[in-house]
Design a binder for these strands. Structure first.
Lengths: 224, 224
DNA sequence: CGCGCCATGTCATGAACCTGTAATAGCTTC
DNA sequence: GAAGCTATTACAGGTTCATGACATGGCGCG
């Protein structure tokens, strides 16, 4: 149903919630600390982050702020009973909802659903390829949950290539389709654009995973 | 899911929406005129009425008033481009929501759900996006609790964009849907209107949070 | 009937940002 | 090692958009 990243240091709570959410068809990834969570979020394109407030190392509020700084992923905060629970602080940090522990799994799940309903009232055609997420409605691209800003021509190129994963396109085809040029001249234009795109979406631009070179022919997207 | 009565005279729109709603597990009854609609409503216990404004015979506003006089069925109004956009009329007639045509089926369905949620669950009086509240029934907009007066065209633009949060619309699409224009000329008209809208609803118009520019493509609402 | 306000469309300006090109370096294949 | 192909980088011209001023035209009100 949804991709959930659970950041919670107590192993028993973590395991219980993970099991419960998985039992309801969510994909769950979990982390035991804020640092670990932020790192995982960079790879796991979560729809929503369930975030405990009391964490070893950097605390929940700070994690929340850092997530917000980087992406618009929804955040549900978990506060343990007895924590100094500051609604204003939570709001300012940018959480979308709060749940007080002990939390029954079905309650948490209902909150997650509510948050997701709110943020994507209209389901958009989102395609995920590994850690890369391409949203064709909002024309946004994110890599590991972090939004990547792409200039128009690079975005068009990515949209075009990713619409047919695995298919090889010649430079000429791309010039005609993506650029709408008719000229038949030799041009390294496509190459340059591919480079700039790779620099933004690939983890290791030198070993491209998404936009691959097919020597002598052109480029293709994936296969991932 | 819900019982929907669709009152719409254009057969192609009627069929398209009927199919789409049935595909999403709603029971749909349709009528081609106001009279027919009122008659069917008397037999078909609809949860919600989707009502076109421009109808042969008695018009949408009048149908709306008659439905309101007799029952509390929810009403979602549909206004075609070129319809006389009458804020006062919409207010007085008592619709629960207001959608500008052309409408994508999933948007209509989302709005139907929203209306039903509102009426049979926890009352959720307005749609809230961050500090911005858009009341699609009374056609009022408030920002941080303070009401904002918007001229018709700006209100219409906001309603159209916010009906599909995240979706990017080209200037051409907006000219066709929100304005009555069919011409294909280059025009900065949309820009100017967006500009004026931003000045009224954005906290920092230079860093828009609600109506965002997608360079090379157009504009979108949020995602917040 | 005339006045003035407001909504809307058009235009000029400037800034920020793309993007095509070219030059160079690196890699593959034979 | 040479030829052919691709990666990488820098830069200047060009495009796109924000902004604000101005023109127009409708509408209500005096």
């Amino acid at each position: 149903m949804a991709r959930v990243l659970l950041i919670e240091d107590d192993p028993s709570v973590r395991d219980a919630l993970t099991l419960a959410l998985k039992g309801r068809d969510h994909e769950v990834e979990s982390a035991a600390s804020g640092e670990d969570g932020l790192e995982r979020l960079a790879r796991f394109a979560a729809d929503v982050v369930v975030l405990d407030l009391m964490l070893p190392g950097i605390d929940g509020f700070e994690v929340c702020r850092r997530i917000r700084a980087a992406s618009s992923t929804s955040i549900v905060m978990l506060s343990a009973r007895g924590d100094d629970f500051d609604v204003v602080g939570g709001l300012e940090a940018g959480a979308d909802d709060y749940v007080v522990k002990p939390v029954r799994p079905q309650v948490l799940e209902a909150r997650i659903r509510a948050v997701l309903r709110r943020t994507d009232g209209v389901p958009s055609p989102v395609e995920t390829y590994g850690a890369l997420c391409v949203d064709r409605a909002s024309l946004t691209v994110s890599r590991g949950g972090r939004q990547v800003a792409l200039p128009p021509i690079e975005l068009r190129l990515l949209l075009y290539l990713s619409a047919s994963p695995g298919q090889v396109f010649s430079r000429q085809q791309l010039l005609e389709s993506v650029w709408e040029h008719d000229y038949l001249g030799d041009s390294r234009l496509v190459d340059a654009c591919v480079q700039r795109l790779r620099a933004k979406i690939e983890d290791v631009p030198a070993e491209p995973r998404y936009v691959q070179t097919v020597r002598g022919f052109g480029y293709r997207f994936g296969p991932v």
